[in-house]
């Protein structure tokens, strides 16, 4: 499968994602430029983390206007796979491919640390191979990661089983104590109703290389590879 990783001006996790896909997982990857209007045959698009356009307005609010985003949206609407991580998740909610919004962390600070995630289902390509009874150690690094959706939208997200990851303890317990940023429902990641567009705040690409002594994130990519 061919992956496409989009670089917006200000993206800073694009190289990390390409490294994991190409050098660790030995996949075919094309780096897409924000001014491009062609996905160059990529079947799985990844919007990486960073501060697109400086994120001086709202995170992701300008990036959604990039030429490449028209193609990404068309791709998603045709059922193509799209994954947004951190700033990529923010771009997906801003562009309407995913519901909800990502607000300032409730402590009003940027937070970078390892957190634990629990898969909320096994019904997406990214969660299918994961164990719902264990936790996965994956780092976060964001200032605006508090997932929010109005009540009726949240009900629909839950009814449609669109939550893919929740923050939890190392032992896998859910609870406000293990919620790093105040996200509603401990939500760390969601998908769309079509289950082909995914967004998550934690960075699985930062936990996928043996040299860093944590490969929990690699399991998410392996799930994708096994199920597409």
């Amino acid at each position: 499968m061919k992956f496409g990783v989009v670089t917006f001006p200000g993206s800073n996790c694009d190289d990390d994602m390409i490294y994991v896909l190409r050098d660790v997982l030995k996949q075919d990857v094309v780096n897409l430029w924000h001014k491009d209007t062609d996905l160059q045959g990529a079947e799985f698009i990844i919007l990486p983390g960073g501060f697109s356009y400086g994120d001086y307005l709202r995170s992701g609010a300008i990036a959604k206007l990039s030429p490449i985003m028209n193609e990404v949206i068309n791709h998603a609407n045709r059922g193509g796979y799209v994954l947004g991580i951190c700033n990529g998740f923010q771009i997906l909610t801003e562009s309407g491919l995913l519901e909800g919004a990502l607000l300032h962390n409730n402590n009003q600070k940027f937070i970078c640390k390892n957190v634990y995630l629990k898969p909320a289902n096994n019904s997406t390509v990214i969660t299918k191979e994961l164990d719902r009874d264990r936790s996965y150690k994956i780092p976060i690094a964001h200032g605006e990661g508090r997932f929010y959706a109005p009540e009726d939208m949240m009900k629909s997200i839950l009814d449609n089983d669109q939550v893919i990851f929740r923050y939890c303890s190392e032992e896998g317990q859910l609870g406000e104590l293990y919620n790093p940023n105040g996200s509603l429902n401990n939500i760390a990641g969601i998908c769309n109703k079509g289950r082909n567009v995914f967004g998550m705040m934690p960075h699985p690409e930062r936990a996928a290389d043996a040299a860093l002594s944590n490969e929990d994130g690699r399991l998410l990519f392996e799930s994708i590879l096994k199920n597409i």
Partner: peptide, 27 residues
């Protein structure tokens, strides 16, 4: 330090292996 991104670049070996110095992988 939790306000600093200490892991971007996927080179920081000492995140999960604490050490007296910061150690970064030369990929």
């Amino acid at each position: 330090y939790e306000q600093y991104d200490s892991m971007v670049g996927t080179k920081t070996m000492t995140t999960n292996q604490p050490s007296d110095a910061g150690v970064v992988n030369i990929k």
